[in-house]
């Protein structure tokens, strides 16, 4: 399970990097989203994956899940959500001003 998740995280980072390198604004932002998701999954893995046990210590259960990484991910997801919303508004404003979502053309127009 850990290996599978590690491969998934790698794929997320790989495709995120690929998307960031493209010229279209919206693809860059999707790439950023993918990378942050990869980071979140990595946080999940940092506590170790133990299936089926609650994040509580009781007298009869022998193992428990570490609740801290989940709290961290929750925080990270909320922050990422807010920033994604801001980015979308920013890119819409930029699109309205520049009449294009191509980063190369934006650079050319900005230097006029």
């Amino acid at each position: 399970m850990e290996t599978l998740l590690a491969i998934l995280i790698g794929v997320l980072f790989f495709s995120g990097t690929y998307l960031i390198l493209s010229k279209q604004l919206i693809r860059v932002f999707l790439g950023l989203s993918l990378i942050t998701h990869g980071a979140n999954l990595l946080l999940l893995m940092s506590g170790g994956l133990k299936g089926g046990s609650p994040p509580l210590i009781s007298e009869n259960s022998s193992q428990f899940t570490d609740p801290l990484p989940q709290a961290l991910i929750l925080t990270a997801i909320v922050i990422n959500f807010a920033i994604t919303a801001f980015l979308l508004v920013l890119s819409y404003q930029a699109y309205k001003k520049y009449q294009t979502d191509d980063l190369d053309q934006m650079r050319r127009n900005g230097n006029e």
Binding site: L32, I35, N40, L43, S46, A76, M106
Partner: peptide, 23 residues
């Protein structure tokens, strides 16, 4: 708008790497 785009993108990437480091 153009410069803030660079700024935001760079900082999101570094924040994601920060999370990776924390993990």
């Amino acid at each position: 708008l153009r410069e803030s785009m660079t700024y935001v993108v760079i900082n999101i990437i570094s924040s994601a790497l920060f999370l990776v480091g924390i993990a």
